[in-house]
Design a protein around this nucleic acid. Structure first.
Lengths: 344, 344
DNA sequence: TTCGTAACTGCAGACGATTGCATTTTTGAG
DNA sequence: CTCAAAAATGCAATCGTCTGCAGTTACGAA
C-alpha cells in the first residue's frame, strides 16, 4: 500500500485543459462561469473522486475549523460523555475535534496545549488535570488571545468562559438527603484538596451541615489520593472512628464503589450499618449492590454547551466577554442511603 | 478575545533583519549557519513564543503526522481504552490523533472517513459500526491507497491489516468454564447476527458444546438488538424456556448486566438458579452483585498494537503486506458462574 | 592588491486552494 | 466588418514553511 495520493485541482485542470482557478470556481458554483464548463468540471471532479485538501484551505484562510479538547482521561465515563457532546455539536457545525488526554499530568497538559496550538486549532476546550495547581500555561493562552473554554475542572480566576456543574449545590443536595434520612455524623471523603471539585463539594457539604445545625467536625473529613489503595485505606479509617458515623459522602462514585467493596468484604452492611453516597452517577453506581445514591451530572450536556459557547465565540455570535455557565445536578437517591428507614 | 495570531517566521525575520530561510535553518539547527546568528534567532524565537505552523509544514511535506480514528462510540469503556492506547502510542511517535464516532451508523461512518481523508490524515484506524454490512467505503479507501487498519469490529475479506481478539477462543473459554462447572443447557445471547463479534463468539460457543458432546439447540440461541429493552425481553424469554437452562452466556457484558438486573428484580437467584457470564470485562462486571464472570479484553493493548502497526507501515518499517494480529483473551471467573458448586 | 575559497545568507519556487484583477473570447449592435 | 460591452477564463499573489541553488560576504594566501 503506497502513500495515498489525493487528487488535486491541478490534476483536474490538466485533464480538462483549463486553469486551476476555473476548477476552484466551478466547485464553488461561481456564477461567473460558463454553465457547460462548470458541468464538465463538476463531473470530472466526481469521477476522479476529488476531495479538497483541508490543510491547504485552512492555511489559506488561517482557520482550521478544528477544535482541540483536553481531558484528564478518556476512559472515564464522564469525560467520554463530555467528548461525545463536544463531538456531536462541533461536527454539526462543520468542525473537527482533536482529542488529547493529560493523564492527570500537568506536563502532559502543557504538551497537549503546545501541540494543539501548533496544529492551529481554532479554539480549545479544557478540563484541568489533577496535578494542575499552577496556571501559567492558561494565562499564556489568554495573553496570546487564543480562544478557550474551561469545563468541569476549571480555574476560577482566569477571565475566560467556564462551564461547570453546581458542585456545591449537588453536594448540598446529597448531604441534605442524608440529613433528612436522620444521619448526623456524616463523613466527607475528599480528593486532593486543591482540586476544584474537592473544594466545591466540601462547600456544599458544610453548608448542608450548618443549615441542619450540625457542627463541623474536622475528624470527619477524610482525604484520599483517589487511587484504589488510597480509597480502601480511607474505608478502613472510617470504620475506626468512634462512634461510627451514620453516613459517608464520597466526592466521586469510584471512591464510593471502592469503599463499598471493602466494607462488604468486611461484612459491614450498607445501608443498615452505614449509609453511603457518591457523586457523578457513573454507570457502575446503578449496578452495585446496594445501588449507590449519587448525584447525576449530564456530561454530554456539559460538553455540548461548552462547544456551543466556544463556537459561538469563534463565529462571533456570542459576546467575547467571558461567561460562566453553571449546570444543575440531580440527586439520584438509591438504596445505599436508606440508613434509618431500613432500621425502622 | 480576538482570533489568536500566531507568530510566524516572517515576523522573526523582520525583527532581526534577516531572511525567512535563515530563520528556518536556525530553528532546524542547520550547520551552515553562523553560530552567533543561530543563537540570536533561537533566542528571539523563544522570546516571541514562536511555534511552527503544523498546517503549513504538513502541506509542504504532504504528511500531516495525524491519524484518524473511527469508533462506534467513545462512551463505551472498551473503545475508550482502545483510543487511549492509540493516543499514547501515536503521541510517543510524534503523531496527533483525530477521533470520530460513528454512533453505530453506516452513514456517519462514511462521513467520518470523508472528513478524515479531507483532513489529510496519514492513516486511519477503524472499528466498524453495527450497521456496517456493506463495505464499498472501505474498498474505496483501499483503491485510493490510503493506509488503514481495522480493529475489533473488522471485515474479514478486505486485504488490509486487522487487529482482533480471538473472540471465538474467548467464547470457547467461557462456555468451557460453564460446562466444566456442570452446566449443559447453555443459552447464547447474541447481538445482531451480521456483527463480526456475534458470529465469532457463536463459533466458540458451538465448538465448546461440541467438544463436550452437547447437541446444538437453536432454541437456546437468543438474539437481542442490544438495547436495554431488547436485553430485558431476552431475559424474560429465557425464563420461559422449559426446562430452564443452567447457564447463560451473553455476547457482551452490558447485556449480561441488564439480564442480571431483570432477573434479580424477579427474584431469580444468580448463580444458584442460573449461571451467567458476559464478555469484555467492563468495569461494571466486577461490581455487580454477584460479580460477573466474563472474558477480559485488553482494549488499551489492542489500540496500541493497531497504532503501532499502522505507524510501522507508514514509516516503512513494517512490510506493506496486510497482516492479522490476534490478541488472546483471559477468562475472568467470578461468582455469577458458580452454579453447581454453590448448589452442593 | 587581487584572487580563490570557504562560510554564510538570500532568492525563488513548491505544497493546494482561493480571489482580485487582467486578459481573452464571445456577442450583438451599428 | 468593426468595435464596445459583456461574458468567460487565466494570472499571480497569498497563507507559512522548507530547500536547492545562487549570490554575497570574509578571510587568508600569493
Amino acid at each position: 500500500m503506497k502513500k495515498g495520493h489525493q487528487v488535486t485541482m491541478k490534476e483536474i485542470a490538466k485533464k480538462l485543459g483549463v486553469s486551476v482557478s476555473t476548477i476552484s470556481r466551478a466547485l464553488k458554483d461561481s456564477p461567473e462561469l460558463h454553465p457547460e464548463t462548470k458541468r464538465k468540471i463538476v463531473e470530472m471532479a466526481k469521477e476522479m473522486n476529488y476531495q479538497p485538501n483541508l490543510l491547504a484551505q485552512s492555511l489559506r484562510i488561517s482557520r482550521s475549523k478544528t477544535l482541540g479538547v483536553i481531558v484528564p482521561e478518556i476512559t472515564s465515563h464522564f469525560f467520554a460523555s463530555c467528548i461525545s457532546g463536544i463531538q456531536d455539536h462541533a461536527n454539526s457545525r462543520g468542525y473537527n475535534v482533536i482529542i488529547c488526554q493529560s493523564n492527570e499530568s500537568l506536563d502532559q497538559e502543557k504538551a497537549n496545549i503546545r501541540t494543539l496550538v501548533s496544529s492551529q486549532v481554532d479554539g480549545l476546550l479544557i478540563s484541568l488535570s489533577r496535578e494542575t495547581n499552577r496556571f501559567e500555561h492558561l494565562y499564556d493562552l489568554y495573553d496570546r488571545e487564543i480562544n478557550f473554554v474551561l469545563f468541569d475542572r476549571v480555574q476560577e480566576d482566569i477571565p475566560v468562559s467556564k462551564v461547570t456543574f453546581n458542585d456545591a449545590g449537588g453536594a448540598y443536595q446529597v448531604v441534605q438527603h442524608l440529613l433528612e434520612n436522620g444521619s448526623r455524623k456524616i463523613v466527607y471523603v475528599s480528593g486532593p484538596e486543591d482540586l476544584y471539585i474537592s473544594k466545591k463539594r466540601k462547600e456544599g457539604y458544610l453548608k448542608a451541615l450548618k443549615e441542619f445545625g450540625v457542627d463541623e467536625d474536622q475528624s470527619l473529613i477524610k482525604i484520599t489520593d483517589l487511587t484504589e489503595s488510597g480509597n480502601i485505606q480511607v474505608a478502613k479509617d472510617i470504620l475506626k472512628l468512634n462512634p461510627r458515623p451514620d453516613a459517608v459522602f464520597c466526592m466521586i462514585d469510584p471512591v464510593a464503589v471502592d469503599v463499598l467493596t471493602e466494607w462488604k468484604a468486611q461484612g459491614i452492611r450498607i445501608p443498615e450499618d452505614i449509609a453511603l453516597a457518591g457523586f457523578t452517577n457513573n454507570p457502575t453506581a446503578a449496578v452495585v449492590e446496594p445501588p449507590l445514591t449519587t448525584v447525576s451530572q449530564p456530561g454530554y450536556e456539559m460538553g455540548k454547551l461548552a462547544a456551543t459557547h466556544l463556537l459561538d465565540q469563534l463565529d462571533g455570535i456570542a459576546s467575547e466577554d467571558p461567561i460562566s455557565i453553571v449546570l444543575e445536578t440531580t440527586l439520584v437517591a438509591r438504596k445505599s442511603s436508606q440508613h434509618f428507614e431500613v432500621k425502622k
